[in-house]
Every structure is written in structure tokens, then in C-alpha cells.
Design a protein around this nucleic acid. Structure first.
Lengths: 133, 133
DNA sequence: GAAAGCGGTATCCTTTGGGATACTGATAAC
DNA sequence: GTTATCAGTATCCCAAAGGATACCGCTTTC
């Protein structure tokens, strides 16, 4: 992510871009995006948090199958990317809450595109499965 | 991917969906989509193929750094997902060409969303870097 | 006083993705 | 006759991701 961008090219439709530099730059952007959503748990956690702030153990129950260790690691990464904030309340014992940030909603269009494509792709595959029996 | 979908729910805006079943279904769709784009090489290969059909060795030269083993594996996966087709021509020695399918273009909107988000995210991070010096 | 819940951390282990290298049999180029 | 190219495959190896389990100090509930 700290790579220098040598040549800045105005935004253009992906389909029409074929210069090497433009392609590389697009590729880099797409890979940046995939990188932050990568792994088995980022999306499940983000989606669980969409309904409101959650405490650590609450999240672990909502995101079925995740271990405390992994949840902890993922939450740190979400914090680093500024998708979530961690609130500590001085109760005894302390209460810790995780909440999505405003910035996390910049992902909405990405997630929506993924959702739409994934939905039709699944339908397509299920359709083929039927024909293949 | 062969999981049965129990409850079918009409498409709805991602932000407004909060029933458990709807969320799970969305999550599944998003994960399906991420799954097919996953790994270090899927996108570089797809992007290389956008400019036209390529032979195996040609691809290996275009996608810098990929080994034959990995390229071979990735191409098989692209074929399985019907993003690419493999054409074998009976020359001596045989000529093998890989070509994107029509269906691969259904990914365009996904890739475009990822590209746009990735671009602004990178700009955001580079901006922060400056402030932090 | 024992058990369970809180928010994690530490340690060990397995699985997966991917890199490095070597090799194939046929053909074309030097 | 040697070398390079084609489209891969086979084998070995390494690092990262993630699962399993145990544990921490603290507090509430039974």
C-alpha cells in the first residue's frame, strides 16, 4: 500500500482501459480493495456490525464458528482500516463495544456489487446442477 | 457452493436488510463472489486476457512473476467458473489459446466497483501518510 | 464456594497458497 | 548436433491463515 504511483490517469471505464499504466493502476486499486475484504471473516463481522454496536462476546456468538483469537485479530485489522472503532466503557468489569464507522459505508457499493453478482452466479450454478443430474 | 438455499428472498438494498435469513443469504452471495476472485493471480490473468486471446506462455510473460504451475492451476479454475475457455489447435506442436467468455463480462460491474473504491481508499491512505510525517 | 461470563492472550497444530526447480516429448532455429 | 520453445506436470518447500485448547484476572449468579 505504500507503493508510489508514478503516472496518474483520470478515472475511466474499466472496459475501455488498455494502456499498460492504466491497467496496472486499475489492477492495483482492485487488489487494494480485495485485500481489505480478504479472508474468511471480514465480511461476516462487518455484516454483523451493521445492525449496531456489539460487544466482543456478542460478536463471537453472532459470527458462528470464529474463535476468540481470530476475532480479536480481525477486529484489529478492521480498526486499522478505519472500518470499526473500539469503545471501552469504565464499568466493572470493562465493557468493550465495536461499532462501524461512517467510512465503512463507503464499502456499501462494493458489497452491493458483490452481492448482486454472487446471487446471480449462484442461481446460474444451481440451474446447471439441475441439468447435469 | 452446493449448499441448499432454504428461503428465497427478493433482492433488496443491502443496507436495509436485517432479517437473519436475508443477511445470511447476502453474506453467502458476497462470499461466493469474493471466492471466485480470490488469490493473488485471478485478476491479473483476467485483465491480461481482456485485450484478446493469449497462449499459455504469452500469458506467463504478461502476468509477471507467475510460475507455470500456478498459471495452469488458475486457468483451470477460470475455466471451471466459465470465465475463460481453452482452445486447442491441432498444429505441431499444439497451440493452446485462452479466451475470456461472454460471461466473464458479468464481472465488469464488480471489478469497476472494486476499482473505484480501491482508488479512493489508496488516495485516502496516501493523504494520511503525508499528514503523519 | 463453584460455575459461568467478561475480553481477550498464548501456544501449538494443520491446512492452504504459492514459489523454486526439474522434467517431459515434440519441433523449429542456429 | 545443440539449443530454445511449446504447454504443461511433478516434487519439494516455505510462510501465512486459521483452528483447538488452555489460560488470565475480575465479577456476577447459583
Amino acid at each position: 500500500m505504500s507503493t508510489v504511483i508514478e503516472e496518474v490517469i483520470p478515472a475511466a471505464d474499466f472496459r475501455t482501459m488498455h494502456s499498460t499504466a492504466a491497467c496496472n493502476q486499475s489492477l492495483q486499486a482492485v487488489q487494494d480493495a480485495l485485500y481489505v475484504l480478504n479472508g474468511k471473516w471480514k465480511l461476516p463481522i462487518i455484516i454483523a456490525l451493521r445492525e449496531g454496536p456489539r460487544r466482543f462476546r456478542e460478536l463471537q456468538r453472532l459470527v458462528t464458528g470464529i474463535t476468540a483469537k481470530v476475532l480479536s485479530k480481525e477486529l484489529k485489522e478492521l480498526e486499522m482500516n478505519e472500518f470499526a472503532v473500539r469503545h471501552v466503557y469504565a464499568t466493572t468489569p470493562v465493557t468493550v463495544e465495536y461499532e462501524l464507522t461512517e467510512y465503512s459505508h463507503s464499502l456499501d457499493s462494493v458489497i452491493e456489487a458483490l452481492r448482486q453478482w454472487g446471487t446471480q452466479h449462484r442461481a446460474r450454478i444451481l440451474g446447471k446442477d439441475k441439468l447435469e443430474i
